[in-house]
Design a protein around this nucleic acid. Structure first.
Lengths: 409, 409
DNA sequence: CCTGTCTTTGTGTAAAACTACAAAGATAGG
DNA sequence: CCTATCTTTGTAGTTTTACACAAAGACAGG
């Protein structure tokens, strides 16, 4: 086979024929994947293969542990940035033999990958050169695919956005529209919103798309990006395994975003789970409440991501509205604030910390960096000046809620 | 003067002329009062009088301490029930000399009183007999007065009821209407509602009217009776003295109702103070909230009568509405209740008492009549079964509010 | 009936909270 | 500047809590 002749400088009917051609050239099994490691084509007639390849073909997607391993070794990063084929040493823990991989690119964008299973190291420099030609050939096919996907994606986006913003969509109509679009809706879902520091740009968008597509334990049925938010309809995958691990998987999703791309969502919120699609908007609003509350009470709600974990915080938006309609000054707090102002002291803050620390003198004193007796003295003053009985749950809850509500902008 | 001749068997121009005639007959100073001890007429040309009579004439009303003393001695009770004149021994503490009194009646109703100052015990049986005739003569005058008052009262009722039930009455129109009706509205008022066990019947009504009219430190500008409720527009009287004592006086008002007539309001509620009359309805609604909350949380809110003392309880109605619109089961409480059901234990009740007692193990154990270690053990179980951290204020407040809201019917 | 778990009550101990009191620094107002 | 008050920190003694462990009663399921 001469270098002058380029076997990929012709028309191909399909990606399969490209895969077969590569396989013929390099005499190795070949798989072609899209940007999110979904299997697009693979060479047939391959004598030897490895467990990773079998799993990929059977699941029509590269298994998650294989992807994770490749990321961990820094291989995906290499492939994505390099224009040359990359040699991959075997990773036997995930059943992956020696490989060679090259990205299929369109300008800067990575559209997919060509993997070659090279167990016996048969490939030489010449065939590696040819791989670049093969990637070129695959490119046009993938561009076509991508345009199709883009269109479909746009439809998905529109459909999801409609669900998110309309209070009472018809249940049967929604289901019909979903099946028209080829979306299989999960029987039980929740809406999750991730909020990023800044508006989501093209690069971050692609990283997110990649992460969404490669996540496997959670099922992200629909998603939309809006300004600095990623909004997703999520459901646990099939099997009890996935059901139990769901929460962990959601966190893992975010960890992956961070580890692989350094993209960290600032805030995270999840609505309740529902089974009817009339409630998508509800779950969305709930997720937004979690985000809002998280922004308002960052320390108190750190580690709380779901609406059903909000506890009494879920009532606060309602109470704020109620209070605005009917403003009543809390005499006790007012007096404390006044005293603080006049004597530039910190009685109200002291009270706040004390209550935050569950009325535990020692802990509160530590947080405030003062002697316990100092705290004791201050609390006595709080009781005197504010006319508050700090041994009375009702009065403490009143003050606690008051302090919480006062944090509202 | 012969017994056969009745000096009261003729027409009298006014109550004053009756008073003068009595005075001539018995040779003693005379005062005529209405049913609520407001001065209606008094004899002139009286040589001797006592401090109580002077104060009555100057204030155009029997001083409160005098009325109280007469009640305490059981004298008013006697006068009200007897058809005969009653002799009253002097009560020097309140400047009251020896007297003779008789009720002016129309059938069962007491319309007013005739008092005779009898310091030198000059009156004999004959003149006492004549007193009954005098009461008869005064009766017709008082009946006329009463009819007039009834009409005026009806107007007052209508006016007040309108304020209570209309959200945005015009401020200038309200003031004009008040001055038309001869009502002087207080500059600052609150609405107080007293709720009785049963609907207010004629007898209780009269007792209430009597008490309202005789109260002197609080100014009850308007009042209405509706089913089992007495609704009043109250204001402190003039002077700083009255301002400070206002709260005590309100309680005293109720004590008087109880002591004098055995009529005890079951529930009491006061709205906020306002200065504009647009807010009468608001203050009324607030008073009703206090009553409602008092009925829902009798122990917790015993001793709380005003809306501004409700603390966080004032939010509960809003929260109940919010919760109904969006029912979320509190997993922790649900699990506790379930456990209680299955093992017929009292974990949720234990938690409730523990929180009510401000997380004080000793007090809670006492309330529950168990050993502190028993309570400790139960709380540990509560934490395990409900997955609650009882050292976390947020979680405790969540549970506390949840338990409170669950008390709602 | 037995058996194992749940529950109550008891004992003991270390840690923490509450109380009273004292000393000294900080601060405001005359 | 002095003085009175407010504030912080310290010491000491009592009460309460938290925790570990043990014994015994209650109860359910085989």
């Amino acid at each position: 086979m001469s270098v002058d002749h380029n076997p990929f400088d012709r028309h191909f009917d399909s990606l399969e024929s490209i895969a077969d051609t590569i396989s013929e050239v390099v005499q190795c099994p070949v798989t072609i994947e899209d940007a999110s490691h979904k299997l697009l084509a693979y060479s047939s007639h391959d004598p030897e293969t490895d467990p990773a390849r079998i799993a990929t073909i059977i699941g029509r997607r590269v298994p998650e542990n294989v992807i994770s391993a490749l990321w961990k070794e820094g291989i995906i990063q290499q492939i994505m940035t390099s224009h040359e084929p990359i040699r991959i040493s075997q990773i036997s823990e995930v059943g992956l033999g020696d490989r060679i991989a090259i990205a299929i690119r369109n300008n800067q964008d990575v559209l997919g990958y060509i993997y070659i299973l090279d167990n016996n190291q048969r490939t030489n420099e010449t065939s590696l050169q040819l791989l670049q030609q093969a990637a070129q050939a695959a490119r046009t096919k993938l561009v076509q695919l991508q345009t199709q996907n883009r269109k479909q994606e746009q439809h998905h986006h529109d459909f999801f956005w409609h669900l998110l913003t309309h209070k009472n969509p018809s249940e049967p109509e929604t289901k019909e529209r979903a099946s028209q679009l080829g979306i299989s809706l999960p029987p039980r879902y929740q809406v999750i919103v991730l909020e990023f520091e800044t508006d989501i740009n093209e690069k971050l968008n692609q990283q997110i798309q990649y992460t969404i597509r490669t996540v496997q334990q959670i099922r992200i049925a629909l998603h939309v990006i809006h300004n600095n938010r990623l909004i997703m309809m999520c459901a646990p995958g099939v099997g009890k395994h996935a059901e139990l691990q769901y929460k962990d998987e959601c966190s893992k999703f975010i960890t992956q975003l961070k580890l692989r791309f350094g993209a960290v969502p600032v805030r995270r919120g999840g609505g309740l789970f529902y089974e009817q699609y009339v409630f998508v908007e509800k779950s969305y609003q709930e997720a937004l409440v979690v985000i809002q509350m998280g922004n308002t009470y960052p320390e108190a709600l750190s580690g709380i991501y779901d609406y059903n974990e909000l506890g009494y915080y879920r009532y606060l938006p309602t109470l704020v509205v109620d209070r605005e309609r009917k403003p009543i000054i809390n005499e006790s707090l007012h007096r404390l604030r006044q005293y603080d102002e006049e004597h530039n002291s910190d009685l109200s803050y002291t009270l706040e910390i004390f209550l935050n620390q569950d009325s535990n003198v020692k802990k509160a004193a530590e947080v405030l960096h003062v002697h316990t007796n100092t705290l004791m003295y201050r609390l006595k003053r709080v009781m005197e000046i504010g006319d508050i009985d700090l041994n009375n749950m009702d009065q403490k809850v009143t003050m606690y809620l008051e302090l919480k509500l006062n944090k509202w902008k």
